[in-house]
């Protein structure tokens, strides 16, 4: 275990290294900041999409209308099938009689119209609520094929389109984030490599007087972490400020819009960015040192 005064010494060394690498360190910090900012923006977007999804969930219902005379076995087989589906959140069976009662309630005074019916014309219904998915239509078509199903109905088509859009945003967002993460990693490792190169004389002397590899690595690792932290701080400040501004503007024009705004959620997101910055710095410097210090 490294002693405290050694850690302090390394910390000072890494601050010096930071100063010495000047413009390169600035370049690294801005790249980390830019990557984390885009990542953070994506995470905010993602959080808001999830919120939207949550609000759309009421629309994620499919009604299956059963043919009269469907046997108990057919129904229970159908339900067994539903239980196997991961997209199914829950389902409800509404009998003919219940459906008629519901209709009667809905009609209120006009329900007298129903009194003249010789028989209940409403079908037995199974209402399925789905988890957010782009496959509402597929799901509906699959189960409508069952011979005991007379017909089916589901939420509006635009729900599916929005879900498709969300899916696309998630996939492309992940791609962008991974790409930017790799770019920052590359740039950090290059800065550290330059610092290592500039200090190769010192490193050689350290080795000759008996420094362990970890002793030699520590200041460089700290330098990488410091760069990561600086980048993360800048990114967080800009994001917090920018998101606050955007939120105000959007709510001005769309007052009914529900945006991600809980302090806890936002702080959690900014903490994620912060630790990601540290991880990028650490990993970047480890990568560059691996080649130099064997």
């Amino acid at each position: 275990m490294m002693k405290f005064n050694t850690l302090v010494y390394h910390f000072r060394q890494s601050l010096n290294g930071f100063k010495r690498s000047g413009i390169m360190a600035m370049a690294t910090i801005s790249t980390v900041a830019a990557s984390l900012m885009i990542l953070g923006a994506f995470l905010l977007f993602h959080g808001n999409l999830n919120l939207l999804l949550h609000n759309l969930q009421g629309q994620l219902k499919v009604n299956f209308y059963l043919r009269d005379g469907a046997s108990e076995r057919e129904i229970s087989e159908f339900i067994q099938g539903l239980k196997q589906e991961t997209v199914v959140r829950d389902f409800e069976i509404i009998s003919k009689a219940d459906a008629l009662d519901l209709l009667r309630k809905d009609l209120g005074e006009d329900s007298v119209l129903l009194d003249n019916l010789s028989r209940n014309p409403l079908p037995n219904t199974i209402t399925v609520t789905l988890h957010p998915t782009e496959e509402i239509r597929t799901f509906r078509e699959k189960y409508s094929a069952n011979p005991m199903i007379e017909s089916s109905s589901s939420g509006k088509d635009w729900v599916e389109q929005i879900l498709n859009l969300i899916h696309l945003a998630k996939v492309s967002g992940t791609f962008i984030v991974v790409f930017l993460g790799l770019a920052s990693l590359f740039i950090i490792s290059n800065t550290i490599r330059l610092t290592v190169f500039a200090r190769r004389h010192e490193i050689e002397i350290m080795r000759l007087v008996g420094a362990t590899n970890w002793f030699i690595r520590s200041p460089f690792l700290m330098e990488g972490v410091l760069q990561g932290i600086a980048g993360a701080l800048i990114a967080t400040l800009f994001l917090a400020f920018g998101y606050g501004l955007l939120q105000d503007r959007l709510l001005l024009f769309f007052p009914e819009l529900k945006l991600l705004s809980s302090q806890a959620d936002l702080i959690q997101l900014y903490l994620k960015l912060f630790f990601l910055g540290i991880a990028l710095g650490l990993l970047g410097s480890l990568l560059s040192l691996r080649k130099f210090l064997v």
């Binding site: 080795r207 000759l208 007087v209 008996g210 420094a211 362990t212 590899n213 002793f215 064997v294």
Partner: peptide, 13 residues
């Protein structure tokens, strides 16, 4: 590799 630094500490150059 881990033991080399300790050897060097016993040798002044």
């Amino acid at each position: 590799a881990g033991a080399i630094p300790y050897l060097r500490r016993s040798i002044g150059v």
